[in-house]
């Protein structure tokens, strides 16, 4: 539809085609277009076509892009409180993450976004981050000792791996494959989908389901765009967002299992941590929680932990 007064809604992400976050974004666009009778004209640009996470967020701020899903890590560059979600082993399982993020705490965090000229609708997911390396099978905490590990340039991530005994090294993602191939670093940690999509399995032998950080991926819209919509249109969009969120999470969890299976077929050794070892990993990062408690975000952290505990019981 090419009507003059159509509202154009460009949706973007940095996720490859075929991953659940991309499929869901298309679906969301289709629903919005259909329900608004084409009043809102949606275009979807996946796979960093119009930029990576930071560019896309900035794009929403200046309203060149109207909507996107971005992991909470990069969002904390804009809205620092999102940093709390990158605390290691914060959510023991997806259910507790959903409980917290879909409840008042999640809402509270999203309320930081309008100051950034962005509206947060709800939380989709990129899934748990997981550890791969080419040196040895990681079954115990001791196995992590001395691994040269590529991490994000983030205090929290670097501290996490220091606590676990690895040597964290920020290396540019674009140079990561070669760096692992040549042994500049021994391993990396990302959601398992990256290991599949970026062929890391060609240069990595072992993957351990550490599930150390749960990456939520909020669906956000440009605030100027949101404000230009009618109440009715806003309602349509919010409803579509919730419907697609549930579908996306389901799809992503299936995709995660498929990914591990694929990696096994490709010859990687996939390892699960025993419950005792999981416990030891959690204990090892305890100092991070202790110092985080002193930070401005300490109360928020305690609220989340309390909520998680109540879910578990």
């Amino acid at each position: 539809s090419d009507r003059e007064d159509d509202k154009k809604m460009r949706l973007a992400n940095a996720t490859p085609e075929g991953r659940s976050l991309s499929d869901a974004l298309y679906l969301f666009g289709d629903i919005v277009e259909e329900e608004t009778d084409g009043e809102i004209d949606v275009e979807v640009y996946t796979n960093s076509q119009v930029g990576g996470d930071r560019e896309v967020f900035e794009g929403m701020q200046i309203n060149t892009i109207q909507g996107a899903t971005i992991s909470t890590g990069p969002i904390s560059q804009f809205a620092p409180r999102f940093d709390v979600l990158d605390l290691p082993f914060l959510f023991p399982d997806e259910e507790s993450a959903y409980e917290v993020l879909d409840g008042p705490i999640g809402e509270d965090l999203l309320a930081d976004l309008p100051d950034q000229n962005v509206i947060g609708l709800n939380y989709w997911e990129n899934g748990y981050r997981t550890l791969s390396n080419d040196i040895r099978e990681i079954e115990t905490l001791e196995d992590v000792q001395g691994l040269d590990l590529r991490t994000l340039e983030s205090q929290m991530h670097i501290r996490l791996w220091q606590q676990l005994g690895a040597n964290p090294t920020p290396i540019n993602y674009g140079e990561l494959y070669l760096s692992m191939d040549q042994g500049t670093v021994d391993g990396q940690e990302n959601p398992v989908g990256n290991v599949v999509n970026d062929n890391f399995y060609e240069v990595q032998q072992y993957i351990t389901r550490t599930d150390h950080i749960y990456n939520a991926s909020p669906l956000m819209l440009s605030k100027p765009f949101w404000d230009s919509l009618t109440t009715e249109e806003q309602e349509i969009i919010s409803e579509a967002a919730d419907k697609v969120r549930d579908y996306q999470r389901q799809l992503n969890r299936e995709e995660t299992e498929d990914s591990y299976q694929y990696l096994e077929e490709q010859g990687m050794t996939v390892t699960e941590l025993s419950e005792e070892e999981q416990e030891r990993f959690h204990e090892a990062v305890e100092p991070i929680y202790e110092s985080y408690e002193q930070s401005e975000n300490g109360d928020l952290m305690k609220r989340i932990l309390k909520e998680v505990e109540s879910v578990d019981n």
Partner: peptide
């Protein structure tokens, strides 16, 4: 074409060279 707003070009001038490789 009106495909994208012109700010896009300005943003690209920074982000495209913000690259370690």
């Amino acid at each position: 074409s009106g495909t994208l707003p012109v700010e896009f070009i300005v943003q690209g001038l920074v982000t495209s060279v913000d690259s370690f490789p």
